[in-house]
Structures are given as structure tokens and as C-alpha cells.
Amino acid sequence: MAKTLAQEFSKGLWEELPPFRLVLGLCPTLAVTKSVENGLGMGIATTFVLVCSNLLVSLLRNVIPAKIRIACYIIIIATFVTVVELLMQAYAYPLYLELGIFIPLIVVNCIVLGRAEAFASKNAPVYSVADGLGIGVGFTLSLGALGAVREVLGEGTFYGMQVFGSSFEPFTFMVEAPGAFVCLGLMLCLINLAGNR
């Protein structure tokens, strides 16, 4: 294990930033980033699942037989997703209404399964938690950023607060589904420009 804990954490913030550098996990990225709040909520839910499932997969990595590992990972992930769903219903019901079907869909989020298979199944629990946390925070910030751009342009608000004067005509295209693709494409372009320097 050449990398330190801090490196395992920080790689999720840039090198392996899920939606922008790896271009993974696009379904929730495109679907729920209508506003900053939704983006961050989805990111935090995913981070929770990611950290918990990474920890458990890592703890059980010597117990789980190789042939049925995927089935085991899915059970673990699905359990935590349901936990998130129940907790969100109990403590953040309006957010649950907004995110709706995309919460259960975290089960099939390729980032979560990908980290379990590629990282947690081969590394010690502490490193796996750092990895999950790093990727999760990266994912949350990416979703927040995308949500911010779309909300500011599409609704003229940031986290529900008005940013422009009343003369501002909202660019509603940005909060529609096609706007998500365009916005993601432009941001990918900018990030690649910055990354290739």
C-alpha cells in the first residue's frame, strides 16, 4: 500500500472525480441536479451508502466467496440504500419527495458497486472508508456545482434565494432534461481544459 490515507481520500476530489473525470454515475447526475439542494441531498445520500458499503465489503472481503461477490455486494448496498430511504422519509420528507425514485436507484449506481469491486474488496477497512468518503464528497460537490449552475441560470435562484433582480428572465431550458446534458457537457469541457494544462 503505497498511498497514504490522505491520498486515498483526495483522489476522489480530482483525479477520480466521479461525474467529471471518470464520467460515471451520470443517471443521478443528470436527473436530480435541478437545484443545489437536490444535488447536495443526492450526493450526501450516495456518500452515506458508499462509505457504509465500502466499510462492510472491506471487513467481509476474506469471508465473501469470489463467485458470489457481486450478489453479496448488492445485498449490502441495497440494505444501506433502504436505510437511507427510510431515514430520509423520517427526517427530510420534502427532499425525499423531490428525489423520489432516484434514491432507490442508488442501488444500481455504478460508482457504489465500482468502488466495492475495485477498491474495498482489496483494501483494509480504514483505506476503504477514506476512499468511499473521498469519492462521495467529490460526487456531492460535483452534483452541487452542476445544480448551482442549472439553478442560477434556470430559476435565477441559489439554494432557493433570489440572486438576480426581478428583471432577470430565467433560462428555463437549463432546468429541463436537455439542459442537464448541455450543462454537463460544457462543464466537462471546462474541466478537461483545466486538467490538460
Binding site: 458470489i68 453479496c72 433502504t82 436505510v83 427510510l86 422519509q89 423520517a90 420528507y93
Partner: peptide, 28 residues
Amino acid sequence: VLTVLSTLSGGLLAAIQSSTQERIDSQV
């Protein structure tokens, strides 16, 4: 392994479900 894992998962979910049920009902 699969049986134990599923059982534990079911148990955990049942516990959380029953402890949040009341709160969820009031939120709904």
C-alpha cells in the same frame, strides 16, 4: 454467506423500519 448476509440485512431493515414508522407517518 448469502443466507447470513440476507438475514442480517433483513433484521437491520426491520429494526429501522419499525423505529422510524411513526415519524414517517407523521411526515406523510
